[in-house]
């Protein structure tokens, strides 16, 4: 089990850390109003560019655009602004767009799937969601969803652009697929809401309300849907629970809700994050643990692994000597625990 760590050299707490599309760079956002960008490779981590310090308040989140649009990073801040940064070889990082239509802290940002073009969704404490689009005419346009979550928006996430089950048939290359333009938001009203683009009205319309949490919804995340005929969505909350919402391609208006665990997590669940293929969910929580979850063959969610502070107790300096990698073991341990009761091995 290899692991590496490094000091970001921020002056205040970190609020976000995001890897780019290739996993070669990492951007961190901090309460010290700055963003730092690091180059990551197998051997080392280095900060090659200057500190990005145009924000006037804590930076909540950063989001990398798809590389086909260039090296673009968006950031949102307590100062109520969203900045879009572009890196070029000549000038390094420069702000190419300042978006200041929000009247409160901007808490969350997310780039749309690249198929939809360069569109950034921003959720703010002013209760609104804004959509910032770089048009074909070369200008930025913005659109507001008012009163999305009147008490404040904490998180936004885009649905995969290719609908679930659309390309499961081999050789289906004839009809063009209609892309989905939909996003989900989580707010202080304890709700998650989905918003679908309406071509007729030329704006986003609310398409669903996901009721289930009993406190602020902290994070929402649509799963990528490779090879599956359904859509997955994870929401986590201050109520210490994670809910998985599943929608079958056959009944596209119905979200089925499943609790990730019956017993609540020990503390506020802060982040949910899906793997590339959407079959693994990482949950991080105020109890100092990251847990990995996978849906097993029977459709239940099971914990694959967790990592926490226990290592400090169980292994001293010599303990680390025995932590040699064991391939067979690892693959046993991290296999989706799909056992029935009878299959128990202990």
């Amino acid at each position: 089990m290899a692991s590496k760590s490094f000091d970001t050299l921020h002056d205040e707490m970190i609020h976000d850390a995001q890897m780019d599309y290739y996993g070669k760079r990492l951007a961190t956002a901090s309460s010290d109003s700055t963003i730092r960008v690091f180059d990551v490779d197998a051997e080392s981590i280095s900060q090659t560019s200057k500190v990005l310090s145009e924000h006037k308040g804590p930076v909540w989140q950063v989001s990398w655009a798809h590389p086909k649009f260039g090296t673009i990073l968006a950031s949102c801040s307590y100062d109520g602004r969203v900045l879009i940064w572009k890196e070029t070889a000549e000038t390094g990082w420069t702000v190419i767009k300042e978006h200041k239509k929000h009247k409160g802290s901007v808490n969350s940002i997310a780039w749309a799937p690249h198929e939809l073009g360069p569109i950034l969704a921003c959720g703010s404490s002013d209760g609104r969601i804004s959509l910032l689009t770089f048009t074909e005419e070369g200008v930025w346009e913005d659109q507001m969803i008012d009163e999305a979550h009147p008490a404040g928006v904490n998180s936004v996430s885009w649905a995969p652009a290719v609908p679930a089950g659309a390309i499961t048939k081999p050789g289906s290359n004839s009809a063009p697929i209609t892309l989905v333009k939909e996003l989900v938001s989580g707010g202080c009203d304890m709700l998650a809401k989905t918003w679908l683009w309406s071509n007729e009205k030329n704006r986003f319309e609310q398409s669903g309300t996901l009721e289930g949490h009993s406190d602020w919804v902290r994070d929402v995340a649509y799963a990528p849907n490779i090879g599956l005929p359904r859509m997955y969505l994870a929401t986590c909350s201050q109520d210490r629970t994670v809910l998985i919402w599943i929608k079958d391609a056959s009944s596209p208006d119905q979200w089925k809700k499943t609790k990730l665990t019956e017993t609540p997590f020990p503390d506020v669940v802060w982040r949910v994050s899906w793997s590339l293929s959407g079959n693994l969910l990482a949950v991080s929580c105020g109890d100092n643990k990251v847990t990995l979850w996978k849906e097993n063959l029977q459709g239940n969610w099971e914990q694959v692994s967790e990592y926490n502070e226990k290592g400090a107790v169980t292994t001293g300096p010599s303990g680390s000597q025995t932590s040699g990698p064991k391939q067979i073991n690892n693959s046993v341990n991290s296999a989706p625990p799909a056992g029935t009761a009878a299959a128990s091995t202990s």
């Binding site: 970001t8 205040e12 707490m13 970190i14 609020h15 976000d16 850390a17 995001q18 890897m19 780019d20 599309y21 290739y22 996993g23 990492l26 961190t28 901090s30 309460s31 010290d32 308040g57 804590p58 909540w60 307590y78 802290s105 503390d267 506020v268 802060w270 982040r271 994050s273 899906w274 793997s275 590339l276 693994l280 990482a282 991080s284 929580c285 105020g286 100092n288 643990k289 990251v290 990592y307």
Partner: peptide
């Protein structure tokens, strides 16, 4: 004011984790 932040690697079996500040300094 501490929690844990995480981000799964875009394609590898790897994740990034760090201590996260829940509230901003100003709050």
């Amino acid at each position: 004011n501490r929690t844990l932040l995480t981000d799964i690697h875009p394609f590898k079996s790897e994740l990034v984790a760090c201590v996260g500040g829940k509230k901003a300094k100003e709050e």
